[in-house]
Design a protein around this nucleic acid. Sequence first.
DNA 1: GTTATTTTGAACTCATACGTTCAAATTGGC
DNA 2: GCCAATTTGAACGTATGAGTTCAAAATAAC
Lengths: 224, 224
Amino acid sequence: MTTIERARSGRGRIDKRTAILDAAVKVFSQEGYAQANIDAIASLAGVAKPTVYNHFHDKETLFRTVMRDSADRSTARIIAAFATLPDDGADLAGELERVGHLMVECQLSEEGWALQRLLYAEAARLPDLYDEVVARGGIPALNVLAGRLAGLANRGHLEIDDPAVAAGQFMALVAGNLPALSALGTRPVSPDDLADAVRDGVRTFLRAFAAPARRRSSRRPRES
Amino acid sequence: MTTIERARSGRGRIDKRTAILDAAVKVFSQEGYAQANIDAIASLAGVAKPTVYNHFHDKETLFRTVMRDSADRSTARIIAAFATLPDDGADLAGELERVGHLMVECQLSEEGWALQRLLYAEAARLPDLYDEVVARGGIPALNVLAGRLAGLANRGHLEIDDPAVAAGQFMALVAGNLPALSALGTRPVSPDDLADAVRDGVRTFLRAFAAPARRRSSRRPRES
DNA sequence: GTTATTTTGAACTCATACGTTCAAATTGGC
DNA sequence: GCCAATTTGAACGTATGAGTTCAAAATAAC
């Protein structure tokens, strides 16, 4: 089943499989699940229709595979971006903006939007697929960011009660405007608007969570 | 065409039309556009199929009407909620939480999620519909909230540079966790989780935008 | 009651598209 | 060169569903 298994088994032609997946992600994201045409996918992949059914039992299996792969790619990108956030707190605003940019660019990518739109579209029909994508994507990414923020808080650069909450709020603040800006990914976003949105989000995040400059309290409870 | 026109023209049976729309919103939101079946809508509305085509020229027209009506209802609810935000700044945190609750409940409603999922699903295919819904829904609602926040800022209860940005960030902070919490509207949200999310959002919003207690920025001294 | 309009049921047309079948061609391993 | 697995093309069966047609029935206006 897995890419690796097939590659080792020898006989299966791995390139056909990936060609089908590449074509499928394009067609699904342009047309949506129901409107996507298997013949179109086969033709775009340069493959005969029975070959598609040879690799993927039916349309739903193909769709699920596409969504899983897409989620894995996006997650890897976002986690890599978060991992570059330094712990030392130097130029915190600049670093948060940089990471915020990487994050939104991942979501703004063709594939990021496609994944999100398809998830929304099919969540009601395939709730387990939604759960799986969240488990593979959103949750790990959020955990990584929460860990970085917790590190910054421990070193006194941020004042954070709950790192997971703060991580979610960072994402909401920085990326919350993206759907409106890009019309759900159907229109290009001007780099200036994007930079403004990220900057505003980071500024508000820091207004809420930046540790007071004078005090270098590692942990200062605000109220009981 | 409009409800009112039809009601005055007399001959058209207005109740059939609304019954069709009610049925259509249910079927569309459960099945999605492509999977939605006109026969099912007609049957659920207690109406013959040609009657559907008598009121709405084709499936897409019916869909667009459903989306517009749904957007109008949601917008009216949210704007009504925002309008109850008092200007005087008394119990600001409590009031923001109350309004935040009204806002997320609107989005959490069956219809709110249906609208959002269908928008995401069909945005690529019907970009103009997306624009129309945003123009009727998101933008007016955001403007009303921005106006309220600006009022609070003028009276010295908030410290806000750009009310529109702050309004968008309020929505992002308070509602940003909803998709994950409710699995895009496919699962019920526990009232406790919901209250936590709203409280966390409002707390962060106030940490970023609350006017410092000592300084009386503009007009009104803080009464305490 | 008369009349114009709407509604209804049922059957029909037509297009789309999933998934299958199968014999022939191709491929890769040995 | 031989064999086993895969691929291919093209046709097919089948299902689904949008939108139409039409004559009969129901309805509202006058």
